[in-house]
Design a protein around this nucleic acid. Sequence first.
DNA 1: TTGACATACCTATCACCGCAAGGCATATAC
DNA 2: GTATATGCCTTGCGGTGATAGGTATGTCAA
Lengths: 112, 112
Amino acid sequence: MPPTPSTFLNGVPELLVLRLLRDREMYGYELVQAIREASADQLTFAEGVIYPLLHTLERDGALSTRRQTINGRSRVYYSVTPTGRERFDALSAHWRTLTGAIANVLEAPRHA
Amino acid sequence: MPPTPSTFLNGVPELLVLRLLRDREMYGYELVQAIREASADQLTFAEGVIYPLLHTLERDGALSTRRQTINGRSRVYYSVTPTGRERFDALSAHWRTLTGAIANVLEAPRHA
DNA sequence: TTGACATACCTATCACCGCAAGGCATATAC
DNA sequence: GTATATGCCTTGCGGTGATAGGTATGTCAA
């Protein structure tokens, strides 16, 4: 029984979305591909993951939205709010702490 | 709404259990504390996480067990089987790939 | 013009897994 | 004698990624 496809990915979509939106505003469909491209196809999160996440983050005040119609198609652009920025900083720090601790356990010479 | 306590931890208990048991056989109660100690209290997984995981890994053939009674208390020692070793190697490789990819996205200068 | 594909949004349902909170039993120490 | 540590276990909840849909418009080739 191989590991689930989502192994090690808990919380990662949120971390990456906040990270990418920190650089510039983007819309959902764009984010889906930006994540894939920024990770050289190593990370792929489908729309069914990204859209609900964006809605949650907006509801929590971490993101703000701006609607715009381009070529007859409507886009919803997301930006990081100060709250979202704090959230990213906290998440990012948590990420570094955990991965550091895990790396130490994995690489330790031996566990008596 | 702060992140869940389990953010970024999906799959980590399995990774650490297999890693620790790679060095030597251990019993469940011992593993709970070994993880905490090996990570300098950064990672703590309670018995409600570790025991079911051990049962699953044994059922999947990744671990083998040996029962022993010591001081009137019975212990169940777990060892990694060849299947478990392969599983650890795969998990470990997956872990490195993902964390590497995520690090790249996080640390990239800017995302056009 | 029709059909395929990309764009762009959305939702509902499922499966998995860490977490919390218990329960049971024995040994040791105060 | 009762608290603490040891050592095993289970049930139920909640969060979240995965899957698999649905709707609509624009573009491009057959």
